[in-house]
Design a protein around this nucleic acid. Structure first.
Length: 272
DNA sequence: AGCAACGCCTGATAGC
DNA sequence: TGCTATCAGGCGTTGC
């Protein structure tokens, strides 16, 4: 699943490769992928120059010079692929944004992802953007803030770490990884965590995300980069989807439990 | 307020 | 071999 490291990798590659390009035309192959009226979308982006590419939580924002921004959410199986004109078809392509000599393809097997164009001014007020919590790399994200957001909650810590209304960017993979490094079990109630445990969680969030960005993300499902290449982080994952395999630290078999409808993976020896 | 359950969707996989 | 049931999951919504 694309989480912050995967979306940030895409953002950086997009910024380097399509900023300054002009959108010559758009093909919407699956209208339901676009959260606008089809004609409105086409009119709002065609002919526009791409100024920059930003990220908020797991949402990509392609800012256009004409005052509009294209929002792209990949959800679980979404992919953005930059191909030369006439390149072989990519499976599950739902929309194509044509540029000069190349095309940006939005592919999405399970069709959960979406595109939406919104006015750049006031975009922070659209529902897709207005509910997000703090970005982990925002300097304002201090331990004090983390403790205030998390420390009093009765909810289990893992679902809380994944709640985009509280802290953005962590999904199933990296929440498991942060909790492993923090030596805290995913089902612990947030309010039961000691200061030392909260501190260990907080202090592992940025390093976990930074390391994964350094490896260009994790291709556990269908995540690939702009060129269609897999990220390199999977060999460095400590617990996610390693059920039954030995913990890299103590050798104990990694366990999997259900929290809500999601799976959580942890080492029963290392994590308390 | 908190949280489980559901719906969206479809390929991979396990079981028969 | 071929069918069917189950699973994966971000996130908005619903209902207790």
């Amino acid at each position: 699943m694309p989480e912050l490291p995967e979306v940030e990798t895409l953002r950086r590659d997009l910024e380097a490769s399509i900023a300054g390009e002009t959108i010559t035309s758009v093909e919407l192959l699956d209208e339901k992928k676009v959260r606008n009226d089809k004609e409105d979308f086409i009119e709002a982006v065609t002919g526009a120059e791409i100024e920059r590419v930003e990220r908020r939580a797991k949402l990509l924002m392609i800012e256009l010079a004409n005052g509009n921004t294209i929002l792209v959410h990949l959800k679980i199986t979404g992919q953005l692929l930059l191909r030369p004109d006439g390149a072989p078809e990519d499976r599950f392509t739902r929309a194509v944004i044509h540029l000069d000599g190349k095309e940006l393809r939005f592919a999405d097997m399970r069709r959960f992802g979406f595109l939406k164009v919104v006015p750049t001014a006031g975009r922070d007020r659209v529902p897709e953007l207005s509910e997000f919590g703090i970005e982990p790399f925002d300097p304002a994200f201090t331990f004090d803030m983390f403790k205030k957001l998390i420390g009093h909650r009765k909810t289990k810590i893992k679902p809380l770490l994944m709640d985009q209304h509280v802290i953005t960017g962590l999904g199933n993979i990296y929440a498991d990884e942060v909790l492993f490094l923090a030596k805290v079990r995913p089902q612990r109630a947030a309010e039961s965590l000691s200061d030392a445990e909260l501190k260990r969680i907080y202090e592992n969030i940025r390093p976990v995300l930074e390391e994964a960005i350094g490896h260009r993300g994790s291709s556990v499902d269908s995540y690939v980069d702009l060129k269609g290449e897999q990220g390199g982080h999977v060999p460095f994952i400590k617990v996610y989807r390693r059920t039954g395999l030995p913990c890299f630290v103590c050798g104990t078999a990694i366990e999997r439990i259900k929290l809500g409808s999601r799976s959580a993976h942890y080492c029963p020896h290392c994590q308390k």
